[in-house]
Design a binder for these strands. Structure first.
Lengths: 153, 153
DNA sequence: CACCAAATGATAATAATTCTCATTATCACG
DNA sequence: CGTGATAATGAGAATTATTATCATTTGGTG
């Protein structure tokens, strides 16, 4: 099934209404295919002449996160970011530079990672009686540019 | 070496001053051994009759994070949390309930995880020219209590 | 022990997010 | 295919976390 249609079914199942705002927000996240802040999503909507209030953007991002349709990610820069939840095979994670805040998305080791996380996840589910729906992996460090700058100081 | 002493050496090396505020903040995080918000740390300090301004708490948590003495963690509840950085063998991660926000710390699979992350980290370092200093793993899902409540509705 | 850059405290300012409430729109049901 | 109950929305106020400002204090080097 097309990724773009999956969320509609999820909405019907959870008895949430399919509204123009919700459609538009999912659309933006699908088109951009990267992590955006609420404000950035709001800007994209305005560019597309979709009239959606900022409060609605926040409300629906919260809802979509809870439904597992988008993932909320945080890079320690003071705001939340949101990205469309991909199918596991396209799952990706983040490398965050602790100096400049730059974020690199990577999707290496997908198969190995998937297997490892599956195993770890199953143990945690049993041990802590917790239904696991997703996971996120962050690596923190210093990017090339910042390392070069530091030396120059 | 006692964990409680390691940070002093790090301070000397990076030419940062060892001040009562900094000592007190590290002390709180060591005693509590769990993730605390800036405000919670501030409260602990007041309870211990250590007079440290909230701005100083924030400033020093930022500094300690950059120095790798504390880890900044985020559970999507609108604020940052901080915990003392343990030695790798005690490294732990988090299970976050997306319904009630409850966070469970776990430290299972330490050895396997360490090996897996080492391997993945090395590949990423080379591929993206990025010096990796730490990593964090979050599992998201629904805790036992919230699952039981949902059924009852 | 004096000096000076670094650190601090108090508080103002900012930025992100949530709340309020009157209005509008979805969709289940007839 | 209306229609009504109820969910969703918009606009802006309110709240919360965090950062900036700046006058004052302090750590630690020489």
């Amino acid at each position: 099934m097309k990724i773009g249609e999956r969320w509609k079914r999820a909405f019907e199942l959870s008895r949430k209404r399919i509204t123009p705002s919700r459609k538009a927000i999912v659309e933006v996240l699908e088109e951009q295919r990267k992590h955006l802040s609420a404000e950035e999503i709001y800007s994209c909507l305005r560019e597309k002449h979709k009239k959606v209030g900022i409060a609605t953007v926040y409300r629906n991002l919260e809802l979509l996160s809870q439904m597992g349709i988008v993932h909320r990610v945080n890079f320690g820069d003071g705001k939340e970011h949101y990205e469309i939840a991909r199918i596991p095979a396209l799952h990706h994670h983040h490398l965050v530079c602790t100096v400049c805040g730059r974020v690199i998305d990577y999707q290496d080791f997908r198969k190995e990672e998937h297997e490892f996380m599956e195993g770890l996840g199953r143990v945690l589910e049993t041990k802590y009686d917790f239904l696991i729906q997703s996971h996120q992996l962050y690596f923190y460090g210093i990017c090339k540019d910042c390392r070069l700058k530091e030396v120059g100081e």
